[in-house]
Design a protein around this nucleic acid. Structure first.
Length: 195
DNA sequence: TTATGGATCTTCT
DNA sequence: GAAGATCCATAAA
């Protein structure tokens, strides 16, 4: 099923395009209890120009500095005091663009996920940006990890030839630049956080 | 099924 | 000092 790890050139392209093409890709995660595989089903693009809700809009700070690395670097931040969100940096160094991973579908290692996240319904394991960080044990410690070289977290292609039915819509949970069509998800997938 | 408020804390003004 | 790229429990309808 799995083909190979995504290369640096995949990430160093237009952020909206990368956000869309990340759908269906496999996220590999190694934990102290074993390996977890999941499929990305929902993403959001955050840009450097005319995007007031992007963390990079105010310029480079201590918090968002990973976002200014080159494409293929992981950007994790703390939010609301108790949660984390996982982003994939895109484009070139100092650009300040990234893709928020909003939801994934568990493929294997579900027992491990269930160890990190106790919920009644399976779909609640990973159907939100902070839920999937809990499920995969992704923390601020993973900020600046390199998806090209890391053995703990990276992305893979599949040899699945099916054409994904992608929905493009507005982003969730923000108060500025709310009308930009920068959210993408796989139509009909039950792990998508919101319709 | 949808709406609402509380939890909680780091970062930046 | 206030604001969050959220989640969950509880209440209402």
């Amino acid at each position: 099923m799995l083909v190979k790890r995504l290369e640096k050139s995949f990430y160093r392209r237009d952020t909206k395009l990368v956000a869309k093409e990340l759908l269906g890709k496999i996220l590999y995660r190694k934990t102290e209890y074993g390996e977890i595989l999941s499929k990305i089903v929902e993403t959001e693009a955050y840009l450097s120009c005319n995007d007031e809700s992007s963390h990079s809009y105010i310029g480079k700070t201590k918090r968002n500095s990973a976002m200014f690395e080159e494409g293929g670097i992981v950007y994790v931040y703390n939010i609301y005091g108790m949660y984390q969100c996982l982003n994939i940096v895109t484009s070139t160094e100092n650009k300040g663009e990234a893709v928020l991973i909003r939801a994934v579908e568990p493929i294997s290692g579900i027992e491990i996920i269930s160890n990190y996240r106790k919920v009644k319904k399976e779909k609640d394991l990973t159907n939100g940006p902070s839920k999937l960080c809990q499920a995969l044990n992704i923390t601020i410690e993973d900020n600046f990890q390199d998806l090209i070289t890391s053995s703990n977290i990276f992305l893979m292609n599949t040899n699945n030839k099916e054409i994904l039915d992608v929905v493009t819509t507005t982003r969730v949970g923000i108060t500025k630049s709310v009308d930009l069509p920068l959210r993408f998800y796989i139509k009909g997938n039950k792990f998508v956080s919101k319709r």
